[in-house]
Write a protein that binds this DNA or RNA. Structure first.
Lengths: 196, 196
DNA sequence: TAATTCATTGAATTTATATTCAATATCATA
DNA sequence: TATGATATTGAATATAAATTCAATGAATTA
């Protein structure tokens, strides 16, 4: 890769980074190309040199987000509780160091709604189904008493919805993003764990 | 009140109802006046007969939402746990019967972000501080062992963020809004209760 | 019934924003 | 240094959505 290509890649990355933050904080429609340009300190015109359109930029971010918010499958764990504790611990940790991951989470979580999101993007999203996957793990774990009683899918839904909510509020209130003030991941795992 | 005034009030209410659902599902910017008009089965022009502008309509909804999502202060409770259990039980119940309240919750919860929201609206929002109020109740309750250990503000933040997340996901996935599939309010209260 | 007021529409206007484009500057390399 | 390629800008254009408005229809009241 030539020096110029690297430069180009860095510029693109800068734009994506700023856009991720803005899309997470304000949503797709409320984020104007002008906002992103200003955040990345460049002219609006230049944005179109790097990205074909606002939609394509968003699509690229979603594609990236799909990768980044989807570790669980790859994680290996001792027992099913570890699956959730390990993931949350990591997520909360990362959120302080690189708000990045938190923003991606917010963006991905919102895709469920938005009837206005183009089909190509919804498709990427549809392929990940955190709730479904986790429900299976919960169902299996319940047999060994790792989780509380209750419909596994509902438990999984409650758990991931809460995680989503916390990521969103953390995105909105940066003053909560310190070691001291961050929620403890164990509190959240207790949604599915109960006193099992 | 004359018959015509009543008629007018009903029309305004119809518009607000449809708008609440749309604003909750798609956000402010992505909800077009045309969308609301279509949902309320009237012309776009007529919308402006009833509401001065999209922003004023939104403001009115936020004002209404501030009232509806802010019961806790008025609730009386035996012990501090009741405060949260009672509120959540009611909220989840209502969400099935009248998605209304859920949508309002979503709208209110999102106001935290949106730097684009006009000042007048932010002001209404700023006056409610669920997290702050609840933190006090938690702090008081901890002394008597009603809640788990931990920073009261963080606990309150985690709790309300989770509620927010659940309301949002319920708004997005109506198939979860049945007695059987709804999360159990006790699961969520366990965030702050732990095994205390 | 006539006059008045309100409800409603669809088309015209304005405005905000995405997108295009021609011109210029900067960089890389022969 | 000259040439070509890429980066960058600001202004022009296109587009979509909010808002206004004149005209029409329906209800209400004198």
């Amino acid at each position: 890769m030539t020096a110029r290509d690297e430069q180009k890649e860095q510029r693109r990355q800068l734009i994506k980074d700023k856009a991720i933050e803005l899309f997470a904080k304000k949503g797709y429609a409320e984020t104007k190309i002008g906002d992103i340009a200003k955040a990345a300190d460049m002219s609006v015109g230049l944005m179109f040199h790097y990205f074909e359109s606002k939609e394509k930029l968003f699509e690229e971010i979603v594609r990236y987000g799909a990768m980044r918010t989807n570790y669980p499958r790859e994680m290996n764990f001792e027992n099913p509780l570890d699956y959730f504790e390990g993931f949350l611990k990591m997520l909360f940790q990362y959120s302080i160091e690189q708000p990045h991951i938190m923003y991606l989470f917010v963006i991905m979580g919102r895709l469920g709604f938005s009837e206005s999101v183009p089909q190509s993007i919804k498709k990427i999203f549809g392929e990940i189904n955190q709730v479904e996957q986790s429900a299976e793990i919960i169902a299996a774990g319940q047999k060994y008493g790792y989780f509380r009683e209750g419909d596994p899918y509902s438990l999984s839904f409650a758990f991931w919805s809460s995680v989503q909510g916390i990521m969103e509020q953390l995105a909105a209130f940066p003053e909560m993003r310190t070691k001291e003030k961050m929620p403890d991941y164990k509190w959240i795992v207790d949604i599915i764990r109960g006193n099992a």
